[in-house]
Design a protein around this nucleic acid. Structure first.
Lengths: 255, 255
DNA sequence: AGGCATGTTGCAAGTTCTTGCAGGATGTTG
DNA sequence: CAACATCCTGCAAGAACTTGCAACATGCCT
């Protein structure tokens, strides 16, 4: 049963699929069928149409984007990390149309950006070009934060990026993490990226962290924000692993 | 049975629908029929009218805004344009290691960015996220210009982008073009993109235009810079077609 | 006022499109 | 080689679309 009567026309679905393919996301038929609430046959026909126009290449079980956007992020994203996928999907619930949302860089956030539906009244603010391309492709108004590009994280950093972030106000901020620990808080491996992430958190009224269980209990080199400044933790970890974070005030969303 | 006597005229409904489409919202017929208190046939006729004027695209069950959230860059780059390829390759000669180079958005420039070799001492400055990702992947130091993203051009535009560009200085600037004409100069279809391109040209000591023959002699809506401010034209056109540009002082590089 | 033209709306019959399912073919995995 | 999943094809039910038409409201002219 179609959740949205319009998005679930062939054109609507295919337009969404096209955008995801352009963002470099793989298109598994079974998952898409469940997501859209249609049978795999219908998705198969959609992929057939998209393949005919050259947007994707069908493979067994689904399809792959025919044009790989770019190396650094995409190569990491190809290693299809089931956990990151689940976390990204779970975090989608946090975003509602009409919100102003800050999106960090990183693979988890990039996955989330690729999954975003069209949000006609939302605004995305991000220092990560890969994220900006994806949200723009989804038809969401996007503001790009400029600055020196960090080779590792694939996001803009530096004083100009921090200033640009500080000059904005958002309802929600989604951050990735190199490490998250109850007492030390959210941490990142690179100082310049940590500074931008911190500015993003400070400019938002609510902050959520998206990270898989491997980062929990770790301390990366530079603290971004203490846990007191965080509101939500979206992760695939068990409730035992997240208990300590719940005690310091975080709302836990388990993927 | 009209619930609101004023709003429920064809013009009234259609102006509401037009506004929603412009905001990017999908238009499901059944829901709209109930909302306005009319039959789906009436809504269908409204959508028919809106489609005739090009505001929406009708799909089964309703309509989608025609302001296609289609990622302009990636889809267009899919159409492997041999001319653009040659032009991009030819323009590579202009770039030497150690330079500070500004790169515009657009498909031609994006192709060039993908072809760039590692330049350990160069610096790329660009408002186009797709370009930034490519140059970063090539291992080139990159500065991203931030700002509101233009859905069509896939680049940052607006006051902040222009200011950020003006605050930098480059040796070379490579611009794409929607139109190039000897007297009118370089022109673009969108005003906000034209402003950024103009700022890029002004911030660089040398400016080159990359464009295929189809754009020569065309005038797009907004002038970016007059030909007097341009230095090099890289194109696939014949020498007859480029003669007029040579006369106004441009160096011609034929692909 | 009456009559006519125009425009809008809802309804019905016929057509087209989409979708899910069944059956057989094909490819993959152990 | 066998078991299994995925694929293609054809088909039928149902939803949505198109077309034509009649009813009703509105405005204009005589």
């Amino acid at each position: 049963m179609p959740s949205d009567p319009v998005l679930n026309s062939p054109e609507g679905r295919q337009s969404i699929l096209r955008a995801r393919a352009a963002a470099g996301a793989p298109l598994p038929m079974a998952a898409l069928a469940e997501e859209f609430g249609v049978s795999v046959d219908t998705i198969r026909r959609d992929l057939l149409a998209l393949e005919a126009e050259g947007a994707i290449q069908r493979v067994r079980g689904g399809a792959l984007p025919v044009m790989q956007p770019v190396e650094p992020l995409v190569t990491r994203m190809r290693t299809s990390d089931a956990a990151a996928h689940c976390i990204a999907s779970r975090a989608l619930d946090l975003i509602e149309d009409g919100m102003v949302v800050m999106l960090d860089g990183g693979t988890t956030i990039a996955r989330l950006a690729a999954k975003l539906p069209p949000l006609p009244h939302a605004l995305i603010i991000t220092p990560a070009p890969a994220v900006a391309v994806a949200t723009l492709a989804a038809g969401i108004e996007t503001v790009l934060i400029g600055g020196q590009m960090s080779a590792l994280g694939g996001m803009a950093v530096g004083q100009r990026a921090c200033e640009a972030v500080s000059a904005t106000a958002a309802d929600l901020c989604l951050l990735g993490a190199c490490g998250l620990e109850p007492t030390f808080g959210l941490s990142a491996d690179r100082l310049d990226e940590a500074a931008v992430k911190a500015a993003m958190g400070a400019a938002s009224s609510r902050t959520a962290v998206l990270t898989d269980r491997s980062k929990l209990g770790r301390r990366a080199r530079h603290r971004v924000v203490p846990c007191a400044k965080l509101d939500v933790l979206v992760t695939d970890a068990s409730s035992e692993e997240t208990a300590a974070f719940h005690e310091v005030g975080l709302e836990i969303r388990c993927a």
